[in-house]
Computed example of a mutant assay.
Amino acid sequence: MERLPSWIRQHLAALRALLVLTLLTGAVYPLLVTGVAQALFNDGANGSIVRKDGRDVGSALIGQSFTDARGKPIGKYFQSRPSAAGAGYDPAASGASNLGPENIVDTLPAPGAKGTQGKQSLLTQVCARSKAVGELEGVSGARPYCTPDGVGAVLKLFPAVGTPARAVSVNQACPATPFIAEYQGVKVECGRPGEDYSAGRTVAVRGSARAVVPADAVTASGSGLDPHISVAYAELQVARVARERGLGPAEVRSLVAENTAGRGLGFMGEPAVNVLRLNLALDRLKG
């Protein structure tokens, strides 16, 4: 029998390798891994889905908001940290805001200009969130670089070099009253929407306020999907939740402790509270 040409034998060998590898890597290996995962880690392999009254209410691995239809926090529930993932906790848009610590100057909306919208800096977002959390929890929402009205305490000085002759509180749109009356002997003006202040020197003014609201209450996680809050943020919310539900603070703190995960491997990170599991435990406590 005449042997096949070498090029045909090479193609047949490649075809056999393709079929064998397709079978192993495309069928056998996925089925094996799926079977092991389902047998040993059934809950985690299926998304760590949390159920209530026979229906899915979320995942223990993905955060969610506990707000009403208007976006207002529901008083009887612990609140999650902010999220920059889409409209909030959107797994399809997971990610951070990509705003850094030098993002401190707002873009004020120009009045009457179509298509021109204002844009809050990261600093003002943090200030506004801290003010809102403070009002919700009945504590001070003040922070060192924030104005009392919840924007970044930032000045633009003119000229950019040398002794200032003009100072503008660029994040406080007129007719707002600037957070300080004078800076280095110069009267501080409010910011005029639409005016270009880019030529000025940027100065962030540190106040004397001590931050009571924890950092995770005012900043989003890197993924935007973090289901946990810090123990400090949970403790800040205990009084409100207890009051709204007619419970004693000790009862609520006990549930917080039950739903607090320790450090990874005993030494990595900090203890954290799973907000969804905690709120479901509160619902079960009151039927």
Rank of each mutant, 00 (worst) to 15 (best):
P101I: 15
P101Y: 13
N103W: 01
N103M: 02
D106Q: 06
D106W: 01
D106G: 07
A110G: 03
A110H: 04
A110D: 04
G112V: 12
A113G: 00
A113W: 03
A113S: 10
K114H: 12
K114R: 13
K114G: 12
T116R: 13
T116W: 08
Q117L: 14
Q117V: 13
Q117D: 14
K119G: 13
Q120R: 15
Q120I: 03
Q120T: 13
S121E: 08
S121V: 11
S121N: 07
V126D: 01
V126M: 11
C127P: 04
C127Y: 02
A128G: 13
A128Y: 01
A128L: 08
A128R: 09
A128T: 15
R129E: 06
K131L: 15
K131Y: 04
V133C: 03
V133M: 12
G134Y: 06
G134W: 06
G134S: 12
G134V: 12
E135L: 14
L136S: 11
L136Y: 01
L136W: 06
L136M: 12
E137F: 08
V139H: 08
V139F: 10
S140Y: 07
G141S: 09
P144F: 04
Y145L: 12
P148I: 09
P148R: 03
D149V: 15
G150K: 03
G150A: 14
G150F: 05
G152F: 00
A153L: 07
V154Q: 01
V154H: 01
L155V: 07
K156N: 04
L157E: 03
L157S: 06
L157Y: 03
F158Q: 10
F158H: 09
P159F: 07
P159C: 10
G162D: 11
P164A: 12
P164K: 05
A165F: 01
R166N: 09
R166V: 10
A167K: 04
S169A: 15
V170M: 02
N171E: 09
N171Y: 07
Q172L: 05
A173P: 10
A173Y: 11
C174F: 03
C174D: 06
T177M: 02
F179D: 02
A181C: 04
E182Y: 13
Y183I: 11
Q184D: 13
Q184V: 06
Q184R: 14
G185R: 05
V186M: 06
K187N: 06
V188D: 05
V188F: 05
C190H: 05
G191K: 01
G191S: 07
R192I: 14
P193Y: 09
E195R: 12
S198M: 04
G200F: 07
R201H: 03
T202S: 08
